[in-house]
Amino acid sequence: MQNKGINSSDVIIKADDIKKSYGETHAMRGISLEIKRGEVLAIMGPSGSGKSTLLHTLAGIIKPDSGKVYFSGSRIDNLNDHGRTMLRRTKFGFVFQFSQLVPELTAIDNVAVPLLLNGIPRGEAYHRAEQWLNKVGIADAKLNHLANQLSGGQIQRVAIARAMVINPEVLFADAPTGSLDSLNSELVMKMFIKTAKENGTTVVMVTHEPTIAAYADREIIVRDGRVEA
């Protein structure tokens, strides 16, 4: 098994014995894993087991105390702030349980922002934002609603559009439907996975709900900072 996969083109993310502690709390006690390009992976486990810490480390947001993280064959655990920011702007997308849309901006503004930050001209940015909002099922009538006028399900849809609009290689999601009821969870997940598969986006999502993990191609279970076989 050693060395296998680091350069292999079908592995997009690889973690090698990553560890992270917060004082006495060992959030990760040595986790190794490989994620294939285009795969949808669910990270499951009880709360406090280290799922979010793992997700953020794989996304280059948290620096592990030791161990290595590779994205497309390059180390990303030791990037400087600039490198990390570029990765997050151009390669990675994020969706969280309570997606923080900017409340005083409209739905379409929220989705256009990442493109504007990347220097895409305004007209083009708004055009693409509108296309994405349509894809995730936000009706034209809602495009100019303020974010704080949207329902929970609509907010998560807008958040998915905002994450997907830069056409990321990997989409990281932390309990993306954790705040939704069963029907909305199902509708949002169905759309989410369909969109990811159509675009070949790799998805890494944290959830403790088996009904959500069932949308993934594969699941791993984190317990007490370790991945169970």
Binding site: A213, A214, Y215, A216
Partner: peptide
Amino acid sequence: IAEMRQLT
């Protein structure tokens, strides 16, 4: 979960 994945 495999069964659930199949049903989903």
